[in-house]
Amino acid sequence: MNIDPLKALEAKVERLKKDLKTLETRLENSQTDAAHNQLTQSNQLKDTSRKLAKTNDRVTDLAESVHRLERLLVALNRKVRAGETRKADFENWPEIEKEELAKIFHGQEAYARRKFTPQEAKDTRKAIAEYDRKAHEAIEAAESLTHLPPNAESLWRKHYKQWNAITTRVRPEVPDDDTHARDTVAKSAGNEAIKRIRQQIRARIEDAVAGDLLFPAWFENVLGPAAPPGRADDWLYTATDVVLYRLLHDVTSPADALGPAPEEEGHRKTLHDRLTNECAEYRKP
């Protein structure tokens, strides 16, 4: 420690100057480091973007070759179809008889028919009895019109009114007790016929898949060239229904599997809508 305060102060200043110098050196050092880092990073960025451009070019090339491949495949498909390859026949079904189809239609009709509840049947019977009574009265009234003297005006009016009570009304349909039983029979017969026909169709489709046969154009149009992996059973189910739909509704178009959408509501429209949706599902990539 210096005893002279001036000397002491000078020594302190000297120390501080030294500190300052050290600090300056460190600052300079870090600045240099930062500049270096920035340079490296920008170089890396340039590198990456160059690589990206290269990849892009490659993808374009690949897309072109996929397109070429696609066209080649189409051409190949045509050649295969034109050649001797065995084709699956989903058009002719000699083993399915017209009667079976008729049974299905009857079953569908039975399902669509309105059912009378016992109360409704009772009410309808009552209405019919009422109508019959009115008809009887009206006929009596008309009968009296045949021999009334012309100047008995009030009688003429009364009987004419009674007659008119019947002309504006319609006799309700008789509820048939047998309808219900017959419908039940028709429904179960239709269901059985559908089951049998579906089995036959499914067997033929499975044979075609097993034998690597070519599917008809309409079939591939809606269901794709093959079952999607892991969903073969669903696909077969839908395929069977498509073939059954064509069979039931006499669709013969070689390209359009389901034909035009039916206008009126009912079984056919429901089935058409369902099949259209399901098939679209299978064609998704």
């Binding site: 109508y131 019959d132 008809a135 009887h136 006929i139 008309a142 009968e143 019109l145 045949t146 006799r171 008789v174």
Partner: peptide, 14 residues
């Protein structure tokens, strides 16, 4: 009218 009514009665409402 009598003739027509006879036909109507013969047919019956059902």
């Amino acid at each position: 009218l009598r003739t027509a009514l006879r036909a109507l009665q013969a047919a019956g409402p059902g």
